[in-house]
């Protein structure tokens, strides 16, 4: 649209200056120029709107990406914590098993000693 406006401007100027041009021609050319100008303005406005939307979309996308990154980071941390908790739980379970085994051994030893003590 802008290129067309630039192309029409020299024609309007040359016709306006030429003595042979009629008033009707000049008006016609002026109307064409003004329409072109309006069209160019409308196109500019649409372009601006599109640019604005693009910027908004970009911003939204950036925010989404940022949020996704944060979420991924949080998930990694949660996973890490879960792994640590699992490891702690495994260790606790292992210690409980060991304690239970020792308690059983202790009970068995005491029971064995008791039965031995029953000997004459």
């Amino acid at each position: 649209m802008n290129k067309q406006l630039l192309k029409l401007s020299p024609i309007v100027l040359s016709l306006g200056l030429a003595a042979c041009a009629t008033g009707g021609d000049v008006d016609k050319i002026r109307a064409m120029a003004e329409q072109a100008q309006e069209t160019a303005s409308a196109a500019q406005a649409k372009a601006d709107q599109a640019l604005s939307k693009t910027a908004t979309a970009q911003s939204t996308a950036d925010q989404a990406l940022s949020k996704a990154t944060s979420a991924a980071s949080a998930a990694d941390q949660a996973m890490s914590k879960a792994n640590a908790a699992q490891s702690t739980a495994d260790q606790a379970m292992s210690k409980a098993d060991e304690a239970s085994r020792k308690a059983d051994q202790s009970n068995e030893k005491l029971d064995r000693m008791f039965r031995k003590s029953m000997e004459k």
Partner: peptide
């Protein structure tokens, strides 16, 4: 008899019967 009654049902003697 015995002075260790909890030993009844166990192998506790030197061959005697409790």
């Amino acid at each position: 008899g015995t002075n260790k009654p909890s030993g009844i049902g166990m192998r506790v003697s030197h061959g005697c019967i409790h």
